[in-house]
Every structure is written in structure tokens, then in C-alpha cells.
Design a protein around this nucleic acid. Structure first.
Length: 567
RNA sequence: CGGAGUGUAGCGCAGUCUGGUAGCGUACCUGGUUUGGGACCAGGGGGUCGAAGGUUCGAGUCCUUUCACUCCGACCA
């Protein structure tokens, strides 16, 4: 393609709202253009990259025996009501009505649609297993869209669904998908890590995320340096924790503690390690049909509440902050809350670390008072892991130290089981003619997010550096001075020859100055540039690698072969 | 959802306090010079000033309403 014929609106100016490098370069390089909050147009260059990524995804999936389909974008709400997710999914689900006043949703993911499709066409165990996928637009009405393609509202996603007649076969496919995903991300030139994850609104168990390692990542992951363990902070576990400091021995008693409302103040007041304090966090748990419940989460003062774990512990759709009034109404006193003597209306969840804990101090549920010498041995209650893994905690598997790192979630695979097939009554007949629900798995890849992820990992201060399999073109030919007929003619000749060999070449034939064209090349990030300019006098042209900007002079004899060897 | 802010040419902004001809940079078009690191000269096109209503002889500017977008927070008890 010729630059003079392509729409590549590059700019020097950085968009005002862009903070991430991927966002800045994708817009400045003319790959994408913003249309609204979290909405982007893909321009020719962006579309080419998207297609490249899409092809890698498709090739590897097809090789693994998956089949591509394309499902309707607009989904009847009835399917979502049947699965129970119409309520559960929350505000991110865009709901609307058609002219006949029927309810619809814009699919944020397509479990319901795919189950419905398979339910209609698969009746026998003989047709199983089956792995169907699509690469299509999704819409999620994000709370706060930002970071360009990283967290848009409309995005391109590959979503796959597998159907099996047994748990074991589903697990086999799950492992196959893990391997397939690794191949995909490796081909795209990404440095990534597979981590254990929370299943969130999709449901199911045993899910894994594929994290592209980048400082700008929105997810925090805990990784072990000694072994392979890695997990999203929302799902990370650790070895049991002990405290090196001796516990404060005291008899059970109420103690006057004026103006000590924080763990820090309390620790100072009693000169006690926060490990022996009970931190209480009150939240409002939201359920279907507008039902809500006040929940008190209790954990050791040294720990932090992990909200996703907490949300799962009470099986809620969402946890929200309590307002001052709600807190007062529920009978709780900020700063002096404790698990003992709670009003009946409040649900209590205790962290596993508190089980049979002794020599503890907690709020007395009375202003200015704390309980000391609290002994929870045999204390009945709901114990769950609701604490966040912290840096320096020990790995459950090998005892090594865990540390945090940041990642961009580009893939997520789930073992669903019968989470959708049962409520949607998607069944097949087994060998004995008995109806059974499909055992399912589901697998996603954020295709448009991958564009951003690649740039986050591969850029410099001048622009994008696309990896081999994601680059919009393999080579850019830059004519230094288009008015120079010798240069232009040679460029045309090499351009045509390379194209006939199937090389994807971009020819910058604009009558701009040399510097201008170089800046655009550096911004756009095509892996190599062939510069046809002054060196032509000595029978040479210059090949520049975008990564590192190292250049090499090439002799004009057999130039096509020489260039192809170096791509 | 809470807090803060911004809407004026494709993009980035000034003008608003103190009402009186719609501006600047960049990008774009035409002509010319220039051609190995975002060049220069001359000329030119482009605006429902986010929207609606109000005050006024007169509103980008003042008042009311509304919409959109952006930033920060949502780990404290």
C-alpha cells in the first residue's frame, strides 16, 4: 500500500485525556480515533493490526479443533432472565427496549446465546465434545471507561464455549485451551503469566487469567519467586500466617478507649501488634430484586479486606459502602465495631485467620469502648478467606516470598460445569438415553485490548514497536526525496518486486521532507524501514530496524533477497 | 455513586470576571522555494461558541435548566 492512498492521520499532538503510552501512540499514529466515552473507530492501520491479531487467534484455535461461528449482537433479555444473570450482571449490562417494548441486552459475553444455539442443535452425546467460538463486538457499560482500548465500553473479544459429557473431558479441554492460549500470546510476542483468578460474574470454578506483564496494568497479581505460583490478588492464597510478637494476655473485659477509631490508634493505645486486633469493615451487600443486607467483615488488624473475596463470601452481586445514616440505623458505631454482641440484622463474616483466635481486642459496639481479652475458641460463625495476600507473605506451595506485580488481563478461561446448561435446560441424551445437562467451559481473549497490551510492552519514547505477527506491515519503504526521479523509480521497483513475493510493504511516497517521514515511521512502528536516499549514489540503501533503530547499509545487487532475509 | 473540572474550527486552546465585528497555534487548500530528521514565504477555506429557555436594543460572555466529556476517589470504621 502507498501512504498517499491510505488514511493515516498521524499527529504531533497528544490527546489531552490520554495517559497510557498505548492510548497516546494508537491515537497519534492514526490507528484509532475516539468517538465517545470508551468508544473508538478503527482506522485502516488499526484495522490491519486487529486483523493480524485476530488471525493468530483464529489459526491457533482452529488448529486446536475449535469452530468459529458468529452470534447475534443483540440478545433477547429473556435468555438472560432464564440464566439469572439479568439481575446478577449489574449496571454494566446495557438493557434497552425495541419498538414493541420487548427487553433486550447488548451482549457483554455470550454464554446464554451459545448455550441456546447448542441446545437447539445438539441432542446426543455422540456430537460431543464441541468447542465453538466467535470473534465479535461486545458491549460493557463500564463504570469508568479509560486508557483507550484498554478499558473501552465497546470492544472486540474472542469468546469460546465448550460442551462436554463429563467433568473430566471438560478439564481436558480446559488444559488444551491453556496451552493454545500460551501459543497465541507467545506468537504475538508478549511476555505474560498464567495466574489463578476469581470467576466473577461469569461464574464457575477453577478459572485462570492470562496476564501481560506491564507496569501500567490495572490488575495486581501476586507471584511467587521460588515457584510457578501466580494469582490475581482477588483470588490469591498464602500459607498460614503467624505473629512473631507475643500476644497481650488479659481477662475478658470492657475497656475505656476514647478517640481510638483506627487500627493504628488502637495499636498505639494498647501497645499491641495489629495482629491481635480485630478490624471490622461494614459493607452493604446487594442481591437480586433490590434486596440488600448489612454485613460486618472481621479480620485481624494486620490484614486488608479483599473486596472480591468478601463479596463471594456472602454470595452477593456487589458490595457497596454504607452511608453515615445507614451505619447509624444498623446500630453500628464507626471505630468501635466488633463481632460480639451484634444486632441480629447484621450478618457477620470472619476471616479464616481469626478461627480459634485468642488474646484479641475488638470494638465493643459501644462508643469509646473496646473489648479486651477476647477469645474466639469455638466461636460459631461463618469463616471465610476474605483477606488480601500481602507482599512478603509466604507461598502456600513452596514457602517462598510472594510479591506483587501488575498485569493486563488479556485472556481468561473458566471451568463452568453446568452453571448455565442447568438453568437454561440445555441437555443431551447420554449412552443410556438419559437427559443430562452439558458440562461446559468458557474461554475469552480481549482482542482489541491486545493491541493496547502489545504497545504497553513494546514501545519507546518515539512510538510503537509492533511485534512481527502483529505489525500492520512487514516493511516500510521511505523515499527520501520523491522529486528525485532516480530514488522514486528505484523505490517503485523494489516495492513491486517485494509485493510480488508476498511481502506486505508500505511505500511512503509522500512529497514530504525526510525528517517528517522518519518521524511517522517511528510513530507507526512498522518493524523495518528501507530508506532510499542519498546512499543510492554508492549503490546502497539503508535498512533500519524499528526496535533499537539500528541501521545497516545494503548493496543494491539482489536487494529484494537481501531485504527478505532480514525481515 | 461521591468530589472536582471542562464544553468555542479536525486537534490543542484564548476570549467569559467587566455584554458591543469570532480569535491564536496546529492541521487543511492554492502557488512558489526547499528535500537525510516534523522547513519557509504568500494567499485562502473552515464555527448552530454543547443544547434549551430567559434577561437585554444587543449574549460566546449574565440567569435557569439540561446533556456530554474528562480527572480524582470509592481499602476507612
Amino acid at each position: 500500500m502507498r501512504v498517499t492512498q491510505l488514511l493515516i492521520p498521524t499527529t504531533k499532538e497528544t490527546p489531552n485525556d490520554a495517559t497510557l503510552m498505548s492510548h497516546i501512540y494508537l491515537i497519534r499514529g492514526g490507528f484509532i480515533g475516539g468517538v465517545g466515552s470508551g468508544l473508538y473507530n478503527f482506522l485502516p492501520l488499526g484495522k490491519r493490526v486487529l486483523d493480524k491479531i485476530r488471525n493468530v487467534v483464529k489459526e491457533e484455535l482452529d488448529r486446536a479443533g475449535c469452530q468459529e461461528v458468529s452470534l447475534g449482537f443483540v440478545t433477547p433479555a429473556s435468555l438472560w432472565q432464564e440464566s439469572g444473570r439479568y439481575e446478577k450482571y449489574g449496571k454494566e449490562l446495557l438493557r434497552f427496549k425495541d419498538r414493541k417494548n420487548n427487553d433486550f441486552v447488548l451482549g457483554p459475553t455470550h454464554e446464554e446465546m451459545m448455550v441456546n444455539l447448542v441446545k437447539q442443535s445438539v441432542k446426543s452425546y455422540k456430537a460431543l465434545p464441541l468447542n465453538l467460538y466467535q470473534i465479535n463486538l461486545k458491549f460493557r457499560d463500564e463504570i469508568r471507561p479509560r486508557f483507550g482500548l484498554m478499558r473501552g465500553r465497546e470492544f472486540l473479544m474472542k469468546d469460546g464455549y465448550s460442551f462436554h459429557s463429563s467433568e473430566a473431558d471438560m478439564k481436558r479441554e480446559f488444559a488444551l485451551m491453556e496451552e493454545t492460549y500460551k501459543k497465541i500470546f507467545t506468537r504475538l510476542g508478549l511476555e505474560f503469566r498464567v495466574v489463578e483468578a476469581d470467576s466473577g460474574a461469569i461464574g464457575g470454578s477453577g478459572s485462570k487469567e492470562f496476564m501481560v506483564l506491564a507496569q501500567s496494568g490495572e490488575d495486581t497479581i501476586a507471584v511467587c519467586d521460588e515457584c510457578e505460583y501466580g494469582a490475581n490478588i482477588e483470588a490469591a492464597v498464602r500459607a498460614p500466617k503467624k505473629c512473631g510478637v507475643a500476644p497481650p494476655e488479659a481477662d475478658f473485659a470492657k475497656f475505656y478507649t476514647p478517640e481510638t477509631t483506627t487500627i493504628e490508634e488502637l495499636s498505639r493505645f494498647f501497645k499491641v501488634d495489629p495482629f491481635y486486633l480485630i478490624k471490622c469493615v461494614a459493607k452493604k451487600a446487594l442481591y437480586d430484586d433490590g434486596v440488600s443486607k448489612v454485613v460486618l467483615f472481621a479480620l485481624r488488624g494486620s490484614e486488608m479486606l479483599q473486596e472480591v473475596k468478601a463479596c463471594n463470601a456472602v454470595d452477593a452481586n456487589e458490595l457497596v459502602e454504607l452511608s453515615e445514616e445507614e451505619l447509624a440505623q444498623s446500630g453500628l458505631i464507626a471505630g468501635f465495631m466488633g463481632p460480639i454482641g451484634l444486632p441480629d440484622s447484621i450478618k457477620l463474616v470472619l476471616d479464616e485467620m481469626l478461627r480459634d483466635g485468642n488474646h484479641l481486642i475488638c470494638g465493643a459496639n459501644e462508643r469509646e469502648y473496646h473489648q479486651i481479652g477476647v477469645d474466639l475458641s469455638g466461636f460459631e460463625g461463618l469463616y471465610k478467606d476474605i483477606a488480601s495476600v500481602q507482599e512478603g507473605d509466604s507461598c502456600l506451595h513452596c514457602g517462598g516470598a510472594l510479591r506483587y506485580t501488575k498485569g493486563i488481563e488479556v485472556g481468561h478461561i473458566f471451568q463452568l460445569g453446568t452453571r448455565y446448561s442447568e438453568p437454561l435446560k440445555a441437555e443431551y441424551l447420554d449412552e443410556n438415553g438419559k437427559a443430562k445437562p452439558f458440562v461446559m467451559g468458557t474461554y475469552g481473549i480481549g482482542v482489541s485490548r491486545l493491541l493496547a497490551a502489545i504497545i504497553e510492552q513494546h514501545h519507546d519514547e518515539k512510538g510503537c514497536i509492533w511485534t512481527k505477527e502483529s505489525a500492520p506491515f512487514a516493511l516500510e519503504i521511505i523515499v527520501s526525496n520523491t522529486k528525485d526521479e532516480q530514488q522514486s523509480a528505484l523505490a517503485e521497483e523494489i516495492y513491486t518486486a517485494l509485493r510480488s513475493k508476498g511481502v506486505e510493504v508500505l511505500l511512503d511516497d509522500r512529497s514530504e521532507r525526510f525528517g517528517f517521514k522518519m518521524k511517522d515511521f517511528e510513530l507507526i512502528g512498522v518493524p523495518s524501514a528501507l530508506i532510499i536516499g542519498k546512499n543510492i549514489e554508492e549503490g546502497k540503501v539503508e535498512l533500519v530496524k524499528r526496535d533499537g533503530l539500528v541501521s545497516e547499509l545494503l548493496d543494491l545487487s539482489n536487494i529484494v533477497e537481501r531485504v527478505m532475509e532480514r525481515l
